[in-house]
Nucleic acid binder design. Sequence first.
DNA 1: ACCTGAACACCGTTCAAGT
DNA 2: ACCTGAACACCGTTCAAGT
Lengths: 186, 186
Amino acid sequence: MSDTRQAILAAARSAVQARGYNALSFREIGKEIGVKSASIHYHFPTKGDLGAELARDYTAQGKAYLDELSACDSAVGCFDGYLAIFRKALEDDNRMCLCGIMAAEQHDLPEQVRVEVSRFTDMNVAWLESRLESLLPELRADAPHDRAIAIFAAIEGAQLVARGRSDATMYDRAIQSYRASGLIPG
Amino acid sequence: MSDTRQAILAAARSAVQARGYNALSFREIGKEIGVKSASIHYHFPTKGDLGAELARDYTAQGKAYLDELSACDSAVGCFDGYLAIFRKALEDDNRMCLCGIMAAEQHDLPEQVRVEVSRFTDMNVAWLESRLESLLPELRADAPHDRAIAIFAAIEGAQLVARGRSDATMYDRAIQSYRASGLIPG
DNA sequence: ACCTGAACACCGTTCAAGT
DNA sequence: ACCTGAACACCGTTCAAGT
């Protein structure tokens, strides 16, 4: 893959995690990496093509990370690792999960981007569900799929709210309550 | 207050709940209500002024609604009413909490809008905290403020994720798990 | 008091033209 | 294969000018 294409993807990912899909600008990316905005259209014909590729790569890399995490010692440790990903985005210039921020922009997304955002959610929910099942019957989650959706949504929400206040400790406090109440194991 | 000003606010609120602050367009609102975009600047000098007013009104109306809700019979019924607000936005053309969607756009918001979004969060957390305290010691929430943050974040997240899939039942399932796990009373 | 047209620098997109 | 300049219709904003 060409260097320019890689540079576009890197700059675009960073921009979307910070400011969202709508704020993504071909001209700004062009300035950042030293090409004209028209050149970016050579690699990604439309903004939707770029957004979809961004989400696709993000999901693939997330999946690779989670597959490693599945091999960790304790099930509770797995959740620690999972929660750390979302915390890290906040630490990194108050960024957000790429697909979380795009979910908020749902109505403005081209269909091809929407599909990829959904795939990211599915991937996360499936991983959480398999982790929950490995904790049974200890956890007694009688509806692991719905519980997985709930955990994913709660974590995304904690990130969203903490980010809205530029205060990562709000994320920590929400997570602590999720655990204290029994929503998240640990 | 002038009719035009009211029409601007109504059209703008609907647009932001559907598509976010970034997608809010003076020209589109102008077309919708039958004035030129330049006229809107007469009422709201900048987009930030309009966004801030939007969030301010939204918080005030939310507070009025929650104050009524506080007088309801049972504490659990209070939470039912609260949860229904967020569900209703999804039913209404897959819309989102005005301040929830703006929180996702944090980095693009003028400071004056950010302040108002924070006030909305504070108002909600304070209300939830007072509801939790009225349930003590039944609930044994040893950190009601953090628990209130957690509940607010979890609900916003459930709305965000359900909206990303255009599937309001995902919201229901997440909420059901929040209750089953004990995060939300009821 | 309220609205407008015209201008400015932005945006994604297209396309013919360059190397 | 990869990049560009110029054009198009959009955007928020400003401001002098209208009523």
